[in-house]
Simulated assay, not measured.
Amino acid sequence: MLTFIARRLLSGVVLLFVVSTVAFFLLYAGSGDIARRILGQSATTEGVAQKAHSLGLDRPVIVQYADWLGHAVTGDLGSSWFTGQDVSTAITSRLSVTLSLVIGATVVSAIIAVVLGVAAARRRGWVDRVVQVISILGFAIPGFLVALGLVIVLAINLHWFKPTGYVPFATSPAGWLSTVTLPIIALALGGIAGVTQQIRGSVIDALRQDYVRTLRAHGVPIGRVVYKHVLRNAGGPALAVLAVQFVGMFGGAVIVEQIFAIPGLGQVSVTATSQGDIPLVMGLVVVTAALVVIVNLLIDLLQGWLNPKVRLS
């Protein structure tokens, strides 16, 4: 098991290095005149040159990358070129907000997907057809349209939830729940569709196995067979899809946070990329890639627990 974990950690570190390296050179290749962008179009040539020198932009790109990497491995991601705020502080202060949305949407997706997928696999018939329609709608309707619809119907018309804003959990648990419910629903719909289809197919395949017929022949109730044995064997592929959905939800959160005016990483990402704030963008890339590595490691560990054969791969 330790060897299995070590291999996954090593591959995660390599992935983090490759992603950050490619992102750095791509950002600098398309950055243009960064110093003038920071100072404004009215800045003098001498002022622009001084600003570029103070930021180290007059050095070769490979030297700048080596300097950034040397600081990054120690946890120093630099400071924003436009606000001067420490990049780590700017990200961590908003990361918990985005994670609360993404983790909440992932949990909701997993629970509902298990219920719908198992129901479709066991009942078949009209239940299966209804689940298929729900899945197709989940794939077809963009998350931002769902978010707008939820705001108009449930927040503005019915006044069940707050249309915009965010209340920290520490300030008011009830207020926090009121502000995150609609964004979580908007993010979760796409995940529900994908995971439901995977669970449905995996459960159908597992129900056809000999061990299921043997358990049923010994009088074991079908519910116990499904939730104790079948789901364990069908859980591996579903976890892989859920991990992909988790990563994809970060991209969806950028749009959803803008719609609901939630101060998460979405607002920071939009502002940093539109301004060309490379240190902040690189910090976002590193944090996002690190989260992907952590999630993949957790999924690999869960799959190794569900299926010991995975540990040998």
Score class of each variant (00 low, 15 high):
residue 178 S to M: 11
residue 97 V to Q: 05
residue 174 A to M: 08
residue 109 S to K: 01
residue 93 S to C: 03
residue 157 N to G: 10
residue 203 V to R: 14
residue 87 V to I: 00
residue 139 F to E: 05
residue 83 T to P: 01
residue 213 R to K: 06
residue 187 L to V: 13
residue 155 A to C: 07
residue 197 Q to Y: 00
residue 91 I to N: 00
residue 88 S to A: 13
residue 149 G to S: 10
residue 190 G to L: 07
residue 169 F to K: 05
residue 120 A to S: 15
residue 87 V to K: 02
residue 89 T to D: 14
residue 190 G to W: 08
residue 113 A to W: 02
residue 148 L to S: 10
residue 205 D to L: 04
residue 97 V to T: 15
residue 89 T to Y: 12
residue 141 I to V: 07
residue 98 T to I: 09
residue 136 I to P: 07
residue 108 V to K: 04
residue 214 T to Y: 01
residue 134 I to R: 02
residue 148 L to I: 13
residue 194 G to W: 06
residue 213 R to Y: 09
residue 186 A to M: 10
residue 161 F to P: 13
residue 181 T to F: 11
residue 196 T to F: 10
residue 196 T to S: 12
residue 182 L to F: 06
residue 160 W to I: 13
residue 214 T to C: 00
residue 109 S to P: 04
residue 149 G to D: 05
residue 210 D to L: 06
residue 148 L to K: 09
residue 209 Q to C: 12
residue 145 L to S: 14
residue 199 I to W: 06
residue 180 V to N: 00
residue 175 G to A: 03
residue 102 V to L: 10
residue 141 I to R: 00
residue 84 G to V: 12
residue 154 L to S: 11
residue 172 S to N: 11
residue 112 I to G: 05
residue 111 I to A: 11
residue 121 A to I: 01
residue 204 I to T: 13
residue 98 T to V: 08
